[in-house]
Design a protein around this nucleic acid. Sequence first.
DNA 1: GAACACCCTGTAACCGGTTACAAAGAAGGG
DNA 2: CCCTTCTTTGTAACCGGTTACAGGGTGTTC
Lengths: 344, 344
Amino acid sequence: MTTIREIAQLCGVSVATVSRVFNQPLTVSKEKREVVERVARELDYRPNESARALATKRSGLIGLVWDTDHRRPGWRHPYLQELLIGLKSALSAHGYHLLMLATSGSAALRAVGASLADPVAYVNMTRRHHLGGLVLIDSGSDAPAFTAFAQSGLPCVAVDVAVDGPRATYVTSDNAEGARQAVRHLVEAGHRRIATITGPGRNLPAADRLTGFRDAVAGAGLALPDGYVVEGDFYRPSGQAAMRSLIALPEPPTAVFCASDEMAVGALLAARHAGLRVPEELAVVGFDDIELAALVDPPLTTLAQDKAGIGVAAARAVLTMVHGGATPEPAFLPTKLVVRSSSR
Amino acid sequence: MTTIREIAQLCGVSVATVSRVFNQPLTVSKEKREVVERVARELDYRPNESARALATKRSGLIGLVWDTDHRRPGWRHPYLQELLIGLKSALSAHGYHLLMLATSGSAALRAVGASLADPVAYVNMTRRHHLGGLVLIDSGSDAPAFTAFAQSGLPCVAVDVAVDGPRATYVTSDNAEGARQAVRHLVEAGHRRIATITGPGRNLPAADRLTGFRDAVAGAGLALPDGYVVEGDFYRPSGQAAMRSLIALPEPPTAVFCASDEMAVGALLAARHAGLRVPEELAVVGFDDIELAALVDPPLTTLAQDKAGIGVAAARAVLTMVHGGATPEPAFLPTKLVVRSSSR
DNA sequence: GAACACCCTGTAACCGGTTACAAAGAAGGG
DNA sequence: CCCTTCTTTGTAACCGGTTACAGGGTGTTC
């Protein structure tokens, strides 16, 4: 690999001048600059990133903390691929790479109890590698550990988890508004008895979706009888069980808003088992717009999240902080109602 | 951050000794070693990775080349999440991190034609960052570009793409054997007229699945009439179209082996539209065992790939080469037949 | 007691960049 | 013409590690 010194020698200038050509071009005279640029191009010079990181204490890297929870092997992120695409493209645009940090703790450490074995270890890695900041992806039960990151003072952006810290913010969908859209849609279709199957209470999107649901139900002047709010865990079986309990009510709902598509699919199954026709006797609305939503029978009405957009927003937020900007406010990306047969 | 020099001063030894304690502990006397280790622990010393990479020309990083093809926006990797989990856990175990390399080319460059805008740029990044090696993930149409990586001399491991080069190898499922399993299963169920919907001809798993299919059909003494091999593109619509053409044959098959679950789902839809009952009138077998497979109606018989295992194997292969070992032979991981209702 | 090997340790060069500081030269003002 | 200011450049220190090499001490052998 060609070094800055070789170029300096070939051009008859000092290494400082060569370095300046790449970092503060305006401080170098036009003639020298052009010579250096030409020689650099001919030799296909690329600065050594390790040396650069050592000298400047900045690598062009953003860390990704995504620690799969081994205690929940079935856990899947509902939109990891799109999220990564969004993150990567927005970071690329600014010349940054994404470093998927290795899990510091072994299974042994993890067994002790902490889910993210040791946030401190991640923070250490961040400093050792001169990472600009961190993007935190929830993997089911890591959310509590995220506060440790948020308080470390490193720029960090969480996805779908609320965090608070001097240089911490988060990105998520506008879950409350999405839930309101869902309810409005059902009310317009004539429904008056609308129930919901929520996600885990501590989960940010789940809580916001429930809040939005309650808002909209109250706003439409509808009652919310006992038993119309059932908690699930985002997964299909819990949706199925919840739907069974709703059907068993003395006055069962005619429509149900589910906090995830997975649970909505479970609800569809329960409805089918109970002999309820969808949408004629029961309307179902999900959330996420996973691939499956369009394929089940009947196809599922759902709220599409801007999956890649969330990645892009997370990337922008972390870059803003890396570049010294103020800590961005949490971002809530709009969702889009996708009406399919399950509700009409 | 504490540095090696601070520790040296506190311990009354030279920096070289401190460095040796961490890199060649046996060359340092027991007493000094213990003192240094204790002080390092007290100060929570962590070596600066940039400095280390600069001096040794080795960073603990493995590059991930996964360039989403913008010309095929709908493209999804069938098992990215599990693959990443496998990669990450195996790399973590050896102290390596995974660097998702930014796309060097912008949309403009990409529009020119090349799908991976510039493999050379990636190779450059590899050297600049002192990456140990690369893992290449196919994103639909990058396979041809992978030969450039394979020939660069860098350790690289491709997933689901055959590459050839001095320090290049690949990892994939044992697709041919999986296809044979599928056919044997169908033959045992009494089928004599078995067709297949294949993936794109140039795709490695698709080609191997077709080869295995032909093997097993011939091995069972079955005929393979004209029109019984239809090429799809791995996606649902193509499976649906292919199934329609199979149904339209003068002697339609009673069973069909699809090279992907997505296409198998398409086949199920086509069968339903044609009024064919599955599995009574048509048996369908897919490949991949994506989440959707268990959820469609009827649930899909399919060949499960060892998704995380492929990641682990890829990680091991690249680490073997990084550590100076011989280039590993391509690995073909066993698949597992998951029998569900679509074939019984 | 000399010669030799081996073990341990320190000095200093090196990896390849960035940048503070000083100095030389050019331009502008009185 | 002298003084000041600005622009451009080079020297050299620095980032935080690794490691070749040399030298001192100890133990063994003859």
